[in-house]
């Protein structure tokens, strides 16, 4: 896979040519934290390349892209993406983004909305909603907390960035070869994937030796006023049991033109666990553009 220098880092990316010829539109897919472009490659890249030229890349500090000491603010990671698009001469594209990848995509959209032919947002949680969420009850979190306690993990599901802390806790278990229950594995395996200690080590290095933790858990720059100005077609999908659902409810008020879907019975990782549903929803959305 090729590398490109963008915004002072080496960015790893892959492009899958469109099967329908050279006049296809572009589709850019942005993964979330603690994973890499493989998150999209197997389930989606081949299927979506029947219609689009598909571009996947590794976020800064992830996969085979550079780990830097700083530069992990969503705004700066949107510049990483902007420069990748410039390098690839992609002026306008459809975007699909999961979780934190959606925060990056939305920052790029606020910076340059003309890049966006459309956006599919999958379970993206924004900081302005995270901060007020603590006062609310996250029902599914109550079911997760006992699982964490069984493993003596000091992680509170009521924390705004609970998911990031869970990833670090499980990564520690993984590199210590501690056997974890299926229930716990189900909560994180779509991210860590393939039992790889290198992925776990990479996440711990990122969170422990760089400014990433501080920058990722800070203000993501996405005010509701900024988001309200985005008027390109948007499909926002949220898992019924996900902590991010409260962001979905907020965005529902912000974007009256957008299409909202709830994935019933699903958690945060439905792009992996319920890939056929996400795929079908994307197709319906794109067909209606």
């Amino acid at each position: 896979m090729p590398f490109v220098q963008t915004n002072g880092i080496r960015t790893n990316y892959v492009q899958i040519d469109c099967e329908s010829g050279n006049d296809c539109e572009d589709l850019v897919m942005v993964h979330g934290l603690a994973t890499n472009l493989a998150f999209w490659y197997i389930h989606y890249a081949s299927a979506f390349s029947k219609r689009y030229r598909v571009t996947l890349y590794d976020l800064r500090g992830h996969g085979r892209s550079s780990i830097t000491d700083s530069g992990y603010t969503p705004k700066n990671m949107a510049v990483d993406l902007q420069q990748l698009l410039d390098h690839l001469s992609i002026e306008r594209a459809h975007f699909v983004a999961h979780s934190f990848g959606g925060v990056v995509a939305l920052n790029l959209a606020c910076l340059n909305p003309d890049h966006f032919a459309s956006l599919v947002l999958a379970d993206t949680h924004i900081s302005i909603v995270r901060r007020v969420q603590k006062t609310k009850n996250w029902e599914f979190g109550k079911r997760i907390q006992p699982i964490l306690e069984q493993h003596s993990l000091d992680v509170d599901v009521r924390e705004p960035y609970f998911g990031y802390r869970l990833l670090s806790a499980v990564a520690h278990l993984q590199i210590q070869n501690v056997e974890i229950s299926q229930e716990l594995e189900d909560l994180v395996s779509p991210l860590m994937g393939n039992n790889s200690k290198r992925t776990a080590n990479q996440w711990l290095k990122l969170m422990g030796t760089t400014q990433a933790e501080k920058e990722l858990m800070g203000d993501d720059g996405l005010s509701l006023d900024r988001l309200r100005k985005l008027n390109f077609p948007i499909l926002a999908m949220y898992g019924e049991y996900s902590q991010a659902m409260s962001t979905g409810e907020q965005l529902l008020e912000v974007w009256p033109h957008a299409d909202f879907r709830q994935i019933r019975g699903a958690g945060h990782f439905f792009p992996i666990t319920r890939s056929s549903e996400l795929m079908e929803n994307c197709r319906q959305f794109w067909n209606g553009l």
Partner: peptide, 12 residues
Amino acid sequence: DFASVDIIQLCV
């Protein structure tokens, strides 16, 4: 010690 992205790299 392949990570998921390395397997994809290999496939590509």
